[in-house]
Computed example of a mutant assay.
Amino acid sequence: MTAIRLPLTHARALRSRARHAHHLPRAFGAALCTAALLTIAPLAFADTHPTGVTAKTLVKSTAAWDQTGYTAYPAGTPEPTLVRITLAPNTPLDWHTHPMPAIGYVTSGQLTVERADNGAQRAFTAGQTITELVDVAHRGWAGDTGAELLVFYAGAAQQPLSVKSPDPRELALDERVKQTRD
């Protein structure tokens, strides 16, 4: 059998490749991941969308409609909930609180909201968003044409979406409450 002799520099190059061949899959994988991230990352953070698709952020907030700041999401298994609420003309809602952040979108009509503790009010009409108060008693009432809204609650499993609160006028007349204030 005849041995084939390669020039010394070519033989060294082949041996060097053989010694480092086990690094190729790792290096190739890293290069592939880097290339994928460089390709995908701009898409993930871009405000552009495919042709025929538009997106508009309707609300993004760290505070409720009256600028009361949000503190945290509830603990537990997340259970996001979307509710359609329809109010007949001039219908009031009871005083209540929400134990989690919630966002409403008025689809039709008008809704006025009011805080129980300081009487602050604000009216919302079709196309507007309402960042709801958390753990603050409030109520709302529909205008002359009624109101319909979609409300997204960022709650946890087994958590109520709202909790009824006493009417502040009744609390003002309640002797037990007066005594705790004195």
Score class of each variant (00 low, 15 high):
Met1Thr: 11
Thr9Tyr: 15
Ala11Gly: 08
Arg12Thr: 06
Leu14Lys: 02
Leu14Thr: 01
Arg15Gly: 13
Arg17Tyr: 08
Leu24Thr: 02
Arg26Cys: 09
Phe28Ile: 10
Leu32Cys: 12
Ala35Ile: 07
Leu38Asp: 09
Thr39Ser: 14
Pro42Cys: 00
Leu43Asn: 12
Leu43Val: 05
Ala44Pro: 14
Ala44Ser: 13
His49Ala: 05
Gly52Arg: 01
Thr54Pro: 01
Ala55Phe: 15
Ala55Gln: 15
Lys56Gly: 00
Lys56Leu: 12
Val59Gly: 00
Ser61Pro: 06
Ala64Asp: 12
Gln67Val: 02
Thr68Ser: 11
Tyr70Gly: 12
Thr71Ser: 11
Ala72Gly: 04
Pro80Met: 01
Thr81Glu: 15
Leu82Met: 13
Leu82Val: 11
Val83Phe: 13
Ala88Cys: 07
Ala88Met: 11
Pro89Met: 07
Asp94Ile: 15
Pro99Met: 10
Met100Trp: 11
Met100Gly: 02
Ile103Ser: 03
Gly104Arg: 11
Gly109Glu: 06
Leu111Met: 09
Thr112Gly: 07
Asp117Asn: 10
Gly119Ser: 02
Gln121Trp: 08
Ile130Glu: 03
Ile130Val: 05
Arg139Trp: 03
Trp141Asn: 04
Gly143Ile: 00
Thr145Lys: 15
Ala147Asp: 08
Leu149His: 01
Leu150Pro: 02
Ala157Ser: 13
Ala157Thr: 05
Gln159Gly: 02
Pro160His: 14
Leu161Glu: 10
Arg169Glu: 06
Leu171Arg: 10
Leu173Gly: 01
Leu173Cys: 00
Lys178Arg: 14
Gln179Gly: 02
Asp182Met: 05
Asp182Val: 13
